[in-house]
Amino acid sequence: MSFRSKITQFQSLIALFILCVLISLLSDKFLTVNNGWNVLRQISVNIVISVGMTLVVLTAGIDLSVGSVLALSGAITAGLLKNGISIPSLNLFIGFSLLGAILAGLIIGSLSGFFSGFTITRFKIPPFVATLAMLTIARGLTMLYTEGFPISELGENFAFFGTGWFLGIPVPVWISGLVILITVLMTQKTRLGRYIYAIGGNENAARLSGININKVKIFVYSVAGMLAAIGGILVTSRLDSAQPNAGISYELDAIAAVVIGGTSLSGGKGTIMGTVLGAIIIGVLNNGLVLLDVSPFWQQVVKGMVILVAVIIDKQNSEK
């Protein structure tokens, strides 16, 4: 392996290292244990969503609805936990335990993803359009369900998922770690993982080799929806409040993490660990810009530039 190809292989890691060195030179608050946990806690949600996005992008698709699905799932979980379901005509109240509310949130997320996957495969709608429609539908449903108001005061047990610690590590970090482990094993060690890469690499060849493409795609979008729901539960738990406008533009951060992590937007190439690195780079960049007191407007410009540079590098590498 040549020196250039070695550099290419580890470019995200090198970028992260350079970024950390630069920020730690400019701010003495960066390399502290507290700040480290803060960054990890903050990026946990993006990691969970980005992992789902990676699976979708590996099949040459895109999911623009994850931010809205995150808000919808968070709202449903919070609403069921706090208010349950009242059916006045039957004089019946259905209450939800913590487990029940979380499961309901996850089911809603998965169903949203399933719906996107179904419309993409059944009606041959481009993923961009189908998930854009789901973005609007999920946001509208969130507004309808919450009537535009936050749902707050969800209890200490629920807050544990977003703010708690287990064995000295924040719970969101454990959850994102578990998500990474399962998806890495799925993509690298199972037949399903190979199907996902095959579909993204060459869909026609995959179909001819007997892979049920529609089934795999629907599964991937459902998983992305479920992971967005996990993100929604983490955000809601952390804030102790389900905000109707939660998750706005989260899909862009997720796509940025996927691209910076080296996953090709044309599908078939990329890794979960690359995306995790991408999410860490975005998290460290965000944290560094805040520590250096850079204006939020400039932060967006810098983030956009980094994504642009990452895509250019990716394109140049793939052309070589």
Binding site: G84, I87, L90, N91, L92, F93, G95, S97, L99
Partner: peptide
């Protein structure tokens, strides 16, 4: 088991 531990039912009046 999961369903049993997820939901409970009450009369709406009592709630």
């Amino acid at each position: 088991v999961v369903a049993y531990n997820s939901v409970y039912f009450k009369k709406l009046d009592e709630v």
